[in-house]
């Protein structure tokens, strides 16, 4: 597009204006959180929310960190989110590959079962799901939460991958099959690399979902040592809800790792996504 549309000065200014307006929408809440998290007491937050802190109280962060045991919560969240991404990427891509490229009697039925899962959320079926997890002895373990959350992401991931796969040409694959290549090889050598943009999409979706999930860990975890950040933040909120400056500090602590990870990986993330999650 950029080759075709050259902007003149006036247009460029207009575009910049719109872009900056949205930047303001995105960044102002963050900025408010940063300034207010550094204020010494809630009085200052309420009297002048946009004023500068006086004095700058960096200790709030240390206080929040120590009080809330964020290190432990963070580890748990990371373990859950990363495991979910690995499991979903593997399981969804293999399943989608078979469903899209090696149809057999019953494959449409399986695909429809997945589509039903897209429309009905698993939290509805909490009671039966709870029985399953308990019978497998996975209650109150990270593995249980990981499997449940991964399974919850399967339908949407399979759906995205199948619809993506219908768009990539079959030539390479058919050539490989002519040469006697077996499904494992085709999947690993040909399909997986071709699917990378769509896989980036589902990996991101899964990571964000797993990182954000509040409800499922609440149900399936009982020991506080296993709590992820979302439950931790709620704990924190119980303690500090009326101390706004501390709340802001806690929120920022919770956001920081994601923010940093994202900044480091933003190029690949965005590149992966914009390489065509939904190519024509």
């Amino acid at each position: 597009m950029d080759k075709i549309f050259k902007l003149n000065k006036r247009e460029q200014l207009l575009v910049q204006f719109i872009m900056l307006a949205w930047v303001a929408v995105v960044l102002i809440p963050f900025a408010a959180a940063v300034f207010n998290s550094l204020k010494p007491n809630v009085g200052q937050v309420l009297r002048d929310p946009f004023g500068l802190p006086d004095p700058w109280s960096w200790g709030n962060f240390a206080h929040a960190w120590v009080n809330a045991n964020f290190a432990q919560y963070f580890m748990n969240s990371a373990i859950i989110a990363v495991s979910c991404v690995v499991i979903v990427v593997f399981c969804a891509s293999t399943t989608a590959f078979v469903l899209a490229r090696m149809p057999f009697r019953g494959s449409t039925f399986i695909f429809i079962c997945f589509l039903i899962g897209v429309a009905i959320p698993i939290r509805l079926a909490l009671a039966p799901l709870f029985d399953t997890v308990r019978n497998l002895g996975l209650l109150d373990s990270l593995l249980g939460v990981i499997l449940v959350q991964s399974a919850a992401m399967m339908p949407v991931s399979v759906f995205i991958l199948v619809s993506f796969m219908r768009n990539i040409s079959k030539e390479l694959e058919e050539a490989a099959r002519m040469d006697g290549a077996l499904p494992f090889t085709i999947y690993w050598r040909i399909i997986f690399p071709l699917m990378k943009p769509a896989i980036a999409t589902i990996a991101l979706l899964t990571f964000v979902q797993a990182w954000n999930e509040y409800f499922l860990p609440l149900i399936f975890l009982q020991s506080e040592e296993l709590y992820p950040l979302t439950l931790g933040l709620q704990r924190f909120n119980q303690q500090f809800s009326i101390q706004w400056h501390m709340m802001f500090a806690g929120i920022l602590i919770m956001m920081a790792p994601t923010l940093i990870a994202f900044m480091l990986a933003s190029r690949q993330f965005i590149a992966g996504l914009t390489q065509g999650g939904v190519k024509e």
Binding site: I87, F90, C91, A92, T94, T95, A96, F97, V98, L99, I110, C113, F114, I116, G117, I120, I122, L124, A125, P128, L129, D131, T132, V133, L147, V148, S150, A151, A152, M154, P155, V158, P183, F184, Y187
Partner: peptide, 18 residues
């Protein structure tokens, strides 16, 4: 074999409870 992990995971922790 390729189909199994995804289908098993989904069936056990999602579809059958549904």
């Amino acid at each position: 074999l390729l189909l199994a992990p995804g289908v098993l995971l989904y069936a056990t922790f999602n579809f059958i409870p549904l």
